[in-house]
């Protein structure tokens, strides 16, 4: 397409938007309310304010109708971007939720619909506008997608590691891009890491707990602490001794094999962030393995997944993990081998 035409069309659209903006300067129209799918059946509400960038429109007026695209990395507009982000993150829990059952106009059986919607966190009963999803649904979808991306590229908060007294080691991965492209490197500890673990960790404990960000740093930020503390309490009350816990940055599940070789624990529990989905970007998994070592096959690992606020409550998962570990120790097996020995 020719650039002049593009410019012309863009200009027309911007003028349309401006005209609309003037007509409906209704503040409520800029507020999009989300039903937080992840938080249980009753629509508990989160309202997020979507900021219409009035600045840029004004600028457009002065800038002779040219649209300015801002990039996140654009330093010149950094202050205004920062401002925007802070407003964007403004969350309030008001009572007036968008009830998802209202996504459908005039449902035939509203009660049945409500019942169905309460059974799944999936985006059902959201209605449609013509052939497309409604704006609210679409924005929520985009928001969840963005949260998923952020979860992958983020880092776990340092103060969490300090609170839980976890020291940090690295795998062979240096940056996130490599982490995503080279899963094999995320499964191996770096030489420095091995050295540090040898120095700091108690050898041959019954249970070794490790934490790793995996594919979701927010999963660790949000849930690891509760699972960790609850698991420790559970192990204590079952009389099982635990080794020195630590944190592995940019790790994959099988990194526990290296840990098994180094420390020789009976059971390794690895709390690791799951690949984020659109229902939750904060889901944590607890992988367990009886005496993992080089060459451990995947069938011998087991997992309790879906640990997050809208799934298995982290504290309950921690308490339950203790019982599972007890069983693993009793049968001296995990995963499929455990199931076989059990029956």
């Amino acid at each position: 397409m020719n650039p002049e035409l593009v410019e012309k069309v863009t200009k027309m659209i911007v003028e349309r938007i401006q005209a609309q903006q003037e007509v409906e300067s209704n503040p409520a129209a800029t507020t999009v309310k989300f039903w937080n799918h992840a938080q249980g059946t009753e629509p508990s509400v989160t309202a997020r304010t979507v900021v219409t960038d009035t600045n840029s429109i004004q600028e457009n007026n002065h800038g002779k109708g040219l649209v300015q695209f801002r990039s996140y990395t654009d330093d010149t507009s950094a202050s205004s971007v920062g401002e925007k982000v802070s407003t964007n993150q403004k969350e309030s829990s008001t009572k007036a939720a968008i009830d998802p059952s209202h996504g459908i106009d005039n449902p035939l059986n509203p009660e049945e619909l409500k019942d169905l919607v309460s059974k799944t966190p999936a985006r059902i009963g959201v209605g449609r506008a013509g052939l497309r999803p409604k704006t609210n649904t679409w924005l929520k979808f985009r928001f969840d997608h963005a949260a998923a991306v952020d979860a992958v590229y983020g880092d776990v908060q340092e103060n969490l590691l300090t609170r839980l007294e976890l020291f940090k080691v690295n795998t062979l991965v240096k940056d996130k891009e490599t982490y995503i492209r080279r899963p094999d490197l995320g499964r191996k500890l770096s030489e420095e890491a091995k050295q540090m673990i040898k120095e700091k960790c108690r050898k041959s404990p019954t249970v070794q707990i490790i934490v790793s960000d995996g594919l979701s740093s927010s999963a660790v930020d949000e849930n690891a602490e509760d699972v960790f503390l609850s698991l420790q309490q559970s192990l204590q009350s079952l009389g099982l001794d635990t080794g020195t816990p630590f944190y592995i940055e940019k790790g994959r599940v099988a990194v526990m094999d290296d840990v098994g070789e180094l420390i020789q624990p009976k059971v390794v529990v690895l709390l690791i962030g799951e690949r984020p989905g659109l229902v939750s970007a904060e889901s944590l998994s607890a992988y367990l393995c009886y005496m993992p070592k080089k060459g451990t096959i995947e069938a011998d690992r087991m997992v309790i997944s879906n640990i997050h606020k809208g799934g298995i409550p982290p504290v309950e998962a921690g308490a339950y993990l203790g019982t599972v570990i007890q069983k693993v120790l009793k049968y001296e097996a995990s995963g499929v081998s455990l199931v076989q020995k059990e029956s």
Binding site: S234, S237, P313, V315, E316, A319, Y320
Partner: peptide, 14 residues
């Protein structure tokens, strides 16, 4: 009502 029985029971016991 919610899924917290194990952890609450365990904590009470501790």
């Amino acid at each position: 009502e919610s899924d917290h029985a194990k952890v609450l029971g365990q904590t009470l016991q501790v």
